Measured scan of single mutants.
Amino acid sequence: DIIVVALYDYEAIHHEDLSFQKGDQMVVLEESGEWWKARSLATRKEGYIPSNYVARVDS
């Protein structure tokens, strides 16, 4: 799995977006363009995230 960590807070604009806080970790489910589908490890919610707001966690 690709794990990313939030670099900034993000408040969902559309209902399919995923809100998150700086430091939150998410599993990337699908990478396509600038918006990635991800699942929050904390809340288990899924939605689209702006890929420029996150960084990959080296395992």
Rank of each mutant, 00 (worst) to 15 (best):
S40C: 11
W35E: 03
Y53P: 01
I13N: 09
Y53S: 08
R39E: 03
M26R: 01
E16P: 04
A55E: 13
G33H: 06
Y48L: 10
E16A: 11
T43Y: 04
Q21F: 11
Y48E: 02
S32K: 14
A55Q: 13
T43V: 03
D9M: 05
A55I: 13
V27Q: 10
D17W: 14
T43I: 04
Y48I: 07
D24W: 04
V27N: 04
Y10H: 06
D1K: 12
L18W: 02
K22Q: 08
K37V: 09
S32H: 14
L18N: 01
I2D: 08
D58F: 10
R39N: 02
E34R: 13
V27I: 14
K22R: 10
E30S: 11
G33S: 06
G33I: 04
V57M: 11
K37M: 14
Q25P: 05
A55S: 10
R44Q: 14
A42P: 05
W35K: 12
G23I: 00
S51Q: 09
G33E: 06
Y8D: 06
H15I: 13
L29Q: 05
Q25V: 15
H15P: 15
I2G: 06
L29T: 07
K37C: 12
L18A: 00
K45C: 11
V4I: 08
S59P: 13
S51W: 10
L29K: 04
D1E: 14
G23M: 03
R56T: 08
F20H: 01
V54Q: 01
I49N: 01
A12P: 07
T43S: 10
I49P: 01
S59V: 13
S59Q: 13
D17R: 09
E30G: 08
D9S: 10
Q25I: 15
I3H: 06
F20T: 00
A38M: 04
I3V: 10
D17H: 15
D58M: 11
S32W: 12
E30W: 11
L7S: 02
D1F: 14
K45L: 12
Y48F: 12
E34T: 14
L41F: 07
I49V: 08
L7C: 10
A55N: 07
Y53N: 03
D58L: 11
E11W: 10
E34C: 15
E31M: 15
T43D: 08
S19A: 09
L18C: 02
V5F: 08
S32Q: 12
S51C: 12
A12V: 03
F20N: 00
A12D: 02
S59F: 12
G47Q: 00
D58E: 12
Y53F: 11
V54K: 01
I13A: 10
V28T: 03
A6F: 02
K45W: 05
L7I: 09
E31V: 13
W36R: 03
